[in-house]
Amino acid sequence: MSAWEQFITYVSQNGFYIWTEFYRHFLMAAYGVLFASIISIPIGILIARYGKLSGFVMTLGSIIQTIPVLGFMAITMVVMGLGTTTVVVTVFFYSLLPIIQNTYVGIIGVDRTIKEAAYASGMTQFQLLLKVELPLAVSVIMAGIRTALVVGIGVVAIGTFVGAGGLGAIIVRGTNATDGTAIILAGAVPTALMAIVADLIMGKIERMLNPVSN
């Protein structure tokens, strides 16, 4: 029996288990990115307002990105323990930089003449942010969230080493089997498909929110 036939057989026999781990995997990535967005977007707006902070914040975010994911999980595990919380926190930290960066770029990229016209019409700084800057920057911000989600899906795959489960658990099970190619594919193929579909959907949303394309 070929590896492809073994893969089809394994999926047909373990479909519910694969779907459960797929759902678990996606939720960990989505929660990490959601929490990062809640923190990162205000930080991006703040450093756009106070440019002197941008260098420090970006550098700090870049330092986090240079730490190997498994090493970061191991450090987080000491505080959070085994399980999904450690993985969600790891995704959270690795999602900060792309969202902060894109929020910053989106806000400072708003045309100065548009902002001056808004001020001239009597808008406060808060009204300017809500009614002008964020609507014009939202597609750029979504691009950062899109990047963070795709990266997060990859990060979660390593979460099996801290007892979080997900599709990475299926991949590891396959590597431990005598002839585990089909099992590895059963974990790797859904992970790749999840990343591709998430990227396509987020890209579609990004284009829909782009004021230039509307």
Results as ranks from 00 to 15, higher is better:
Ile108Trp: 05
Met208Glu: 09
Ile64Tyr: 02
Gly159Pro: 09
Arg112Asp: 05
Thr84Leu: 09
Gly71His: 05
Leu34Met: 13
Thr9Gly: 00
Ile8Thr: 13
Ser213Trp: 12
Val212Phe: 12
Asp199Val: 02
Thr181Tyr: 06
Thr59Lys: 13
Gly152Ser: 03
Ser2Arg: 00
Phe35Gln: 07
Ala164Ile: 08
Phe35Asp: 06
Ala117Leu: 09
Tyr17Phe: 15
Ile41Met: 13
Ala169Arg: 11
Val156Tyr: 02
Tyr104Cys: 06
Ile41Ala: 10
Gly187Ile: 05
Tyr23Trp: 14
Phe26Met: 15
Pro211His: 01
Ile107Phe: 04
Met77Asn: 11
Ala118Ser: 07
Asn102Tyr: 02
Leu60Ala: 14
Ala186Leu: 05
Ala186His: 03
Leu167Lys: 07
Ile18Pro: 05
Thr113Asp: 15
Val151Cys: 09
Met77Thr: 13
Ile201Asn: 03
Ala137Arg: 08
Val57Pro: 09
Val91Ser: 05
Met142Leu: 14
Ile108His: 00
Thr20Trp: 12
Leu128Lys: 10
Met77Trp: 08
Ile99Trp: 00
Asp179His: 02
Tyr31Gln: 14
Glu116Gly: 05
Val89Ala: 11
Pro42Asp: 06
Leu70Ile: 15
Ile63His: 04
Gly154Asn: 11
Gly154Pro: 12
Ile39His: 08
Val138Arg: 15
Ser62Lys: 13
Gly83Gln: 07
Ile100Val: 11
Thr66Asn: 05
Ile171Trp: 02
Phe22Met: 13
Met142Phe: 12
Arg173Phe: 02
Met142Ile: 14
Val88Arg: 01
Thr86Lys: 00
Trp4Tyr: 11
Ile45Glu: 08
Met58Ser: 12
Ala137Ser: 14
Asn210Gln: 10
Pro135Ser: 05
Val88His: 01
Ser40Asn: 10
Tyr23Asp: 13
Ala74Ser: 14
Val33His: 00
Gly106Trp: 02
Val156Ile: 10
Pro98Thr: 06
Val110Met: 00
Ser40Arg: 10
Thr147Met: 12
Ser40Lys: 11
Ser37Arg: 08
